[in-house]
Design a protein around this nucleic acid. Sequence first.
DNA 1: AGAATTCACTGAACCGGATAAGTTGTGGAG
DNA 2: CTCCACAACTTATCCGGTTCAGTGAATTCT
Lengths: 337, 337
Amino acid sequence: MKRPTIADIARRAGVSKGAVSYALNGQPGVSEATRQRIVAIAQEIGFNPNSAARALSGASARAVGLTLCRPARMLGIEPFFMGLISGFEAELAARSYALTLQVVATPELEVEVYRRWWGERRIDGVIVTDLRENDVRIPVLQQLQLPAVVIGGPGDTGRITQVWSDDAGAVTETVRYLVALGHRRIARVSGLPDLLHTQTRTKAFSAVCASLGLNEAVTVPSDYTGEEGGRATRRLLIGNDRPTAIIYDNDVMAVAGLAVAQEMGLAVPGDLSIVAWDDSPLCSLVHPPLTALSRDIAEYGAHAARELLAAIDGKQVGNVEAGTAHLTPRGSTAPPR
Amino acid sequence: MKRPTIADIARRAGVSKGAVSYALNGQPGVSEATRQRIVAIAQEIGFNPNSAARALSGASARAVGLTLCRPARMLGIEPFFMGLISGFEAELAARSYALTLQVVATPELEVEVYRRWWGERRIDGVIVTDLRENDVRIPVLQQLQLPAVVIGGPGDTGRITQVWSDDAGAVTETVRYLVALGHRRIARVSGLPDLLHTQTRTKAFSAVCASLGLNEAVTVPSDYTGEEGGRATRRLLIGNDRPTAIIYDNDVMAVAGLAVAQEMGLAVPGDLSIVAWDDSPLCSLVHPPLTALSRDIAEYGAHAARELLAAIDGKQVGNVEAGTAHLTPRGSTAPPR
DNA sequence: AGAATTCACTGAACCGGATAAGTTGTGGAG
DNA sequence: CTCCACAACTTATCCGGTTCAGTGAATTCT
């Protein structure tokens, strides 16, 4: 089946290619009558502009890129990214931008992908997740002058827009809540330690615990998987003065931690209170349902997408706080026995 | 920063654009010495062919499309799609194809997306998931002659390649296993009833139950969400002759079912055995860990991607069975008390 | 009324590759 | 020694849009 082009429309309308282009793009240079005639013909024959031709003649590719840098087994389980993606999509689809996805193993490969996409002119901008300390991706993006939005800060990203959520505030709120319930021995099982938002949370956790005089507050590093989360929990619970409450950096580890506690004969929340970061249906499914730090991840993603589209349009660099988590108490937290 | 083009390479190598094109694409028409010189220069200046220019001059777009047709809240929780995507990616990245993703609400909108992608020449082929009965997407794909691979059959897809897993066999195996344990009242909580593979499973379930003389075998339709799965479970368990075993069409509903059973004071597996379809880390996290129908979803996706690339290259239409699920017994199944 | 401006449109160049057709230069066959 | 075949290029055209520099006619201004 032959795809219609503007030349086909031009022939049928008895005008030139240029006129058709002006008409379809709402540019001045054609009369209103002619424009309507042309638009009608385009509608009728089901015309869609060839994205390659458009991109080639200087216009944008109308696509943005997203790389996911996690091993496959971790991607499958984390509801976070899917939430983020559907948030992006909502915003991108509305302005008919396509989303190009690539799964990579390391940040170095991620940089390669950015370079290739840029060289191929395949995308107009990228969304960067999982910001790290001295992130290798930032200088490359600046060098390529590739519009970008970084999620996972706040961090030092120079002239690149950031969208982040107030993790420090959320940690503080959570610890205060647990202390108010009567907990004194609070532990935290963190996500990957090299991610900047993990470090933010860890620092805030230490700070608030110190300020409240909790000396035994520890953060055990983990990697977001249920396996590691369970293992970390087991290590925390075999000690003599085991914590009476644990905060987990994601829902999957929290669910795993719950299973470990139950397997060790500890009652939740009687013997151990559990708080999960990033609420997901998962948290309300298990028994008892988990107290969680909820945030609207899709809206967080939509926000990032809007900022990226603004950056592509050459708007100003921003530094936006969005989607701050708030505590949703459920059955997994109570005063310690 | 200016992107290098073949004209830049040509100038530096002292040859014509055409020669550079031949050299970089391994076409005959240049000497080996010249080719190496050109390739070296391309390497040195970090050349990547402009994908738009390439696509415009008749070559392929080097991209494939995937539409996900589920409400956002369902996407987030289902590990299945992420597994599938990382499987696609592995295969696509190896042949440097990009993956373009779009989240849509209905199959009708999905068709619109296909038409637009095709019109824009944005993609070379699509992967179609969640095949339905009399699926509206199939005739459109055939009309557009857009290379495609369908996942979720087997069904009537005409000249479009299918990749499917033997769900009927897996159901049969599972029911036989439960009957061997001594169960006679087995129920099933299914996924969305209009999906073809749900129907396949339902038919197979009825058939095997009938052949084994289980008269009380029922399938309760649900929608893959934990909420609905829990509700369906509750309905099944309040009856007088409640089932002693339930098979769930995905892991999320199974976990929800487990929570409902525990909340109702039923012991798992003592009072109720549970089997989950599609193993995920989730299944081993909960307590007791869930017996599951495991399959290598990433490999399933990789298989589909390979078939799609073959279809794009004009290879023959296939009908491949891949990634059949096998039963992984864990703590959630036992003889009924 | 004649010049200036505006309008509605045309023609052609351009983006960066792929590729068909044409042009050399070289070596071997006759 | 000439002719031919072939390798090794060059040149030109094409893909389908966007955009800029005209162009002729109508309208406005003086």
